[in-house]
């Protein structure tokens, strides 16, 4: 008997299988089929981006953020990566009996502050409480809409050989910050979650070019998994330069200790940007000037060889295939 495993929710291959074999199979339509983070809707001439996301994180407070901030950023970022300007969000809560009211207040305060920063309004919501043990403290769903300029055509299937790939800063920080709080692994770290709304960064990029091909936020499954999705959707190869990847020494060391690869660790404030080669310098400069893009870097290039594959090249001439995340990331010692 096949059953749902945690790995089905890890954002990697098993999640893809669920999407293809159950969701798209049963619910198929041309918008769903595009598999972008946000659906692009045409409402009588107005273009809208529309997306939804649920947040289940243990612990709900972690170094550098909490579930409330995450719930706003996650949805705002899924809108922003379609090139849209995020406008309105809904907020639905599933609360486990026994959650201290002070913790709820703190979370909602974060929701409010983050929404302001991202320029969105929370305009509708819902609350359900379930018995103790039937949920883990607090689950949040947010749904969002944003307006989208008709000039833009940003989608995971638009990368072409020759295009350049950028990322806006250090990878794996959210993943390590959350792991450091997990039971059985506890360690202290100076790493903080990178949770951030990316709408400002996206609009800064769109100010210098309307030629952006792909924008994606590498959340669960990390940079490696998201780049694989892009390589697959665009049927191109992707070549990364290992020494150009921004990874802090602290994340590197924590990853080594736990036997994890930072390229598969979750990010909540990172943006992968793919642009034509002639635009890359302007885009890099615009990103580096933006609040959440100071450490932006060019990390690689789209290629014609080996479509669907992401290859990492190191600084002594060897290369290896970076696959999608398979299964859940588990700390290992052996």
């Amino acid at each position: 008997m096949e059953e749902i495993l945690l790995s089905h929710g890890s954002g990697g291959k098993l999640t893809q299988n669920l999407i293809d074999e159950i969701f798209i199979k049963e619910l198929d339509n041309e918008i769903l089929r595009s598999k972008n983070d946000a659906a692009i809707l045409d409402l009588e001439g107005e273009r809208l981006a529309f997306t939804t996301d649920s947040f289940v994180i243990n612990p709900i407070f972690f170094p550098g953020g909490n579930i409330g901030e995450l719930a706003v950023c996650g949805t705002v970022n899924d809108l922003a990566t379609s090139g849209a300007i995020p406008k309105y969000l809904s907020l639905s809560l599933i609360i486990e009996e026994g959650l201290p009211i002070t913790e709820l207040k703190q979370v909602i305060k974060s929701v409010s502050e983050t929404a302001k920063k991202a320029g969105v309004k929370i305009v509708t919501g819902d609350t359900k409480v379930v018995a103790k043990g039937e949920a883990d403290k607090l689950y949040i769903n947010t749904t969002g809409v944003g307006s989208l300029s008709t000039k833009l055509n940003i989608s995971a299937d638009r990368a072409k050989p020759g295009d350049m790939i950028l990322v806006n800063g250090n990878l794996g920080e959210h993943g390590i910050a959350v792991l450091s709080e997990r039971k059985g692994l506890e360690f202290e770290t100076i790493v903080k979650s990178d949770t951030a709304p990316l709408s400002g960064l996206v609009s800064d990029i769109l100010e210098v070019t309307d030629q952006v091909k792909v924008l994606r936020d590498p959340t669960r499954g990390g940079l490696a998994t998201t780049l694989n999705e892009i390589a697959e959707a665009s049927q191109v190869g992707i070549k990364l330069q290992e020494d150009k990847l921004p990874i802090s020494e602290t994340v590197e060391a924590a990853s080594q200790m736990l036997g994890l690869d930072p390229l598969y660790l979750a990010n909540e404030g990172k943006l992968i940007v793919i642009v034509p080669e002639e635009e890359v310098e302007d885009v890099l400069e615009a990103m580096q000037k933006s609040e959440y893009g100071v450490k932006s870097a060019i990390i690689g290039q789209v290629t014609a060889d080996e479509p669907g594959r992401v290859v990492l090249e190191n600084n002594f001439g060897a290369s290896r295939v970076l696959d999608m995340l398979t299964g859940e990331m588990l700390p290992r010692i052996c």
Binding site: E3, I4, L5, L6, M257, L258, L330, P331
Partner: peptide, 14 residues
């Protein structure tokens, strides 16, 4: 992993 999803108390430690 499967037993964990069926409710077995299995905990991963470093």
């Amino acid at each position: 992993e499967k037993e964990k999803s069926r409710g077995a108390d299995i905990r991963i430690v470093y």
